[in-house]
Simulated assay, not measured.
Amino acid sequence: MAPRYSDEFRRDAVRIATTSGLTRPQIASDLGVGVSTLNKWVQQHQSDDLMSGPHEDVEKENARLRKENRLLREEREVLKKATIFFAGQRA
């Protein structure tokens, strides 16, 4: 019988899959779930978001997008520094 995962676990897995920048196989392996299971959870989450309508929780969505934007900027800065570092080692 397949293991049962709590709603909280599923939400956290979807959040990680959509915001971490890691590949889904990596995330699935780290969490101990199948890739197809993780993909199904993400797909269900996306359809749930679409059904909630554009007017619900706009402020909450804006806050989430700001947080995601900040995370992406931080990741970009790290990658820029890494590029400069590794370019200097080759010279």
Rank of each mutant, 00 (worst) to 15 (best):
K67V: 04
E68P: 00
S6Y: 02
G32A: 12
A87Y: 09
S20N: 02
H45T: 01
G32F: 13
P3N: 12
R90F: 04
R90Y: 03
T83W: 04
L72Y: 06
P54E: 03
Q89K: 12
P25R: 02
R73K: 06
V78L: 15
Q46A: 07
V33A: 08
E56N: 07
S52G: 08
A87D: 11
R11D: 15
R15Y: 14
V58K: 13
L71G: 10
Q89H: 11
L31N: 06
Q26S: 09
P3C: 09
D49Y: 07
E8A: 11
P25A: 06
R90D: 05
T19S: 12
H55C: 08
E61A: 08
G21S: 04
A2Q: 14
E68V: 04
L79V: 00
Q26M: 06
T37A: 15
R64T: 01
H55R: 12
T37N: 08
D49N: 12
V14F: 10
S20K: 02
L65V: 05
G53F: 04
K60Y: 10
P3S: 13
R64D: 04
S29N: 15
R10L: 05
R70N: 10
T23E: 13
V35P: 03
S36C: 04
A2N: 11
R70Y: 12
R10T: 05
K40Y: 14
K40M: 13
V58P: 01
A91M: 00
V78D: 11
R64M: 08
F85E: 08
N62H: 01
